[in-house]
Design a protein around this nucleic acid. Sequence first.
DNA 1: CTGTCCCTGATT
DNA 2: AATCAGGGACAG
Length: 278
Amino acid sequence: MPELPEVEITKRMLEPALLGNKITRVGTTAPSYFFLTSPSTLKKNLLGEETIAIERIGKYLLLNMRSGHRLFLHLGMTGQLYVEGSSNHKHRQDKHVHLTLHFSRNKPAVHFRDVRKFGKVRWLPQGKSDPRIDKLGPDALHTEYSQLCQHLWDASRKRSIPIKTFLLDQSVLAGIGNIYADEALFFAGIRPGKSTKRVSRTKMQELTKAAQDVLRRSIETGGSTIRDYVSPDGNDGANQHEHRVYGRKGLNCTKCETVIKRIVTGGRSTHYCPTCQC
DNA sequence: CTGTCCCTGATT
DNA sequence: AATCAGGGACAG
């Protein structure tokens, strides 16, 4: 489900519910693929902890505790983090809620729901990291434009793979997923299947700009809700209404009227305009 | 570097 | 019944 914009929004909206609040009770489901740290260990460690900061790196979230320990979170495809008792009715409390943090009276609980269980939760004792984070390339928005341009250019010289596959590689660039890769390539006017080696330096700069613009714009509009994403207050995003190619197979390009095509690249569904992108 | 798999549900 | 889904690890 979530790419960088959705994770960033989740982070910002969770802050008021988490920061400075002591965890008084922890709810979990049974051990599964979802728990990198077992539910019982998680409970033991989280009890009495207090989040002092939330960090986002790519699509990952880290809750920094006052103790110096950290909670590592990833939303996978269908993960949802949300605050209990939001005004709307979209949040569900069902068998798919795998982790719940409770706080002292009057303070709403925070739920982590994930239908497909591709999401992850792990307890990181002070000083310990996770290889998934260590391997990440620079974050698509935490990195300044010209520095990111240079990095992507250098990285693109080292191999010859479809540019879309390159964008999706989190060890190259952290945060872009299937939607925003397609959208960024549209705005930069590059075909998703084009080899990295055939993308000029100028085009790589345009792509860097397009990627950062698309991500920032999505955050501004509340992220993309295709099916599962809801923000911590339960609202859908609105950025899906601005998509130019993603999910628009068979519809006309908004620039040139050509019919948008859908192909498969690296096992992922890929959308582009055959006229605007070459 | 591509394919396969993890898991569940909605849609065709 | 088959296909598809905002992700990513791992095998070959």
